[in-house]
Structures are given as C-alpha cells and as structure tokens.
Amino acid sequence: MTSRNAVIFHGTGGSPGILWFPWLGRQLTARGYDVDIPHYPGINVDPVDDLVPTILAGHRFDRDTVLVGHSGGAALLLALLEDLDVTVARAILVAGYCTEPNTEREPVLRKGYDWSRIRAHVRDLYFVNSTNDPYGCDDGQGRAMFDRLGGTLIVREEGHFGDHDQPYPTFELVDRLIG
C-alpha cells in the first residue's frame, strides 16, 4: 500500500522554511502524508527544462500525490505536470502564472504548453490568485490557466499570499483544498 505524499514548491528566491510552507507541512504530516518541501534555488533562475528532470528524479509521483506551488513554484508545476508519466491526485497553484506576469525574466515558463497533457496528469486542479498581487501573478493569470485547463479558480484579495513584506505563516484555504 502506498501512502499519500505531498510536495510543496517555494517560489523565486524562496526556501522551504518561509511563509506558510512549514505550517502546511506540519498539518499534512499530522494527517499521515509524507511531506517533502525541497529547496530548489534554481526555480526561475535555471531554464525550466533543465530543472524538471532533476525534480522528476528526486521525488515520488503517483495517484496519491498532492503538488502545491507558490508563485514561481506554481509556474513550475505547469512544466512538471506536462512531463509526468502518471496522473497525480491534486495540484494547487498559488499565485501561479502561465505568461510573463511583469517585466522580469521568467525562465520557469515554457514558450508553449501542451495543455491537454497537463490536464491529463492531474485529477483535481486549483488556482488560487489575488486581485491585488504586486508581481502580476494575479486573477488574470489564474483565469488564463483556468480557461486552458479547467479545474477550480479561487480569487482573493490577499496580495501574493506571502512575501518579505507580507507575513503569511498559515494558509488554511490550501490546507482545506488538500483535505
């Protein structure tokens, strides 16, 4: 019998010990999940196609896997889902985006996506975006992904859901979405 597992990806310039990531990890561990919150400093620094094989080799992905990504980590999930060879249980993209959200270089994005392949590799897909995201990872980006992939779009007015100037130690919504 396989156990449920979750992989939580930080965003650009982030790390596993910030924001709501440790709290969510503890919540899921208490419910019996095997939780991995890896540190990938190359997110949105290295080309996504160089990073994805390392991630695929470094984690377990199966029908009971839950993926959570924040900002650049959410954008990373698009490429990861496209390249998986299994269908995972759930993916939650928080402050995610599929096109350049601002004037910064975005190596985490692919020039194009096979949207049907992405959709085929996840049973439940959630986009959590904000109307007032200061980096452009806003509800318009959430709508763009939702229009291509379906799933559930949740729009809040909560900035970037955590950043250096926005304390965000817990995130009950994401915890509830995982169940």
Rank of each mutant, 00 (worst) to 15 (best):
H59F: 05
H59R: 13
H59Y: 13
H59P: 07
R60S: 09
R60G: 04
F61T: 06
R63C: 14
D64T: 05
D64A: 05
D64H: 07
T65L: 02
V66I: 13
H70K: 07
H70E: 09
S71V: 02
S71K: 07
G73F: 00
G73A: 03
A74R: 15
A75K: 08
L77M: 15
A79S: 15
A79H: 11
A79G: 06
L80H: 05
L80A: 12
L81F: 04
L81W: 01
E82S: 01
D83N: 11
D83Y: 09
D83K: 15
D83A: 10
D83R: 14
D85F: 07
D85M: 11
D85Q: 15
D85W: 12
V86I: 08
T87I: 06
A89L: 06
A89W: 03
A89N: 11
A89Y: 05
R90V: 05
A91F: 10
A91M: 08
L93K: 12
L93W: 02
L93R: 00
L93I: 14
V94C: 07
V94S: 10
Y97M: 04
C98Y: 02
C98D: 10
C98I: 11
T99Q: 13
N102H: 03
N102L: 01
T103H: 12
R105G: 05
R105T: 14
E106I: 10
E106N: 14
P107M: 01
P107V: 06
V108N: 01
R110I: 02
K111Y: 02
K111A: 12
G112H: 14
Y113S: 07
Y113Q: 11
W115C: 13
S116I: 07
S116Y: 06
S116E: 12
R117S: 09
R117G: 01
R117L: 11
I118Y: 08
R119A: 15
H121D: 08
D124F: 15
D124K: 15
Y126W: 13
Y126Q: 07
F127M: 15
F127I: 13
F127Q: 15
F127W: 13
V128G: 05
V128N: 06
N129C: 10
N129F: 12
S130V: 07
S130T: 09
T131F: 05
N132K: 00
N132P: 03
D133S: 00
P134V: 08
P134H: 08
P134K: 03
Y135Q: 00
Y135I: 00
Y135S: 00
G136K: 00
G136H: 06
C137W: 03
C137T: 08
C137G: 04
D139F: 02
G140D: 15
G142N: 04
R143H: 04
A144W: 00
A144N: 02
F146T: 05
D147K: 11
D147C: 12
D147G: 15
R148V: 09
R148F: 07
L149F: 04
L149M: 13
G150C: 07
G151H: 02
T152M: 14
T152L: 05
T152A: 14
L153F: 09
L153G: 14
V155R: 08
V155S: 09
V155M: 07
E157I: 13
E158P: 05
E158F: 02
E158C: 03
E158H: 04
H160T: 05
H160G: 00
F161K: 12
D163K: 03
H164C: 11
Q166A: 10
P167Y: 02
Y168L: 04
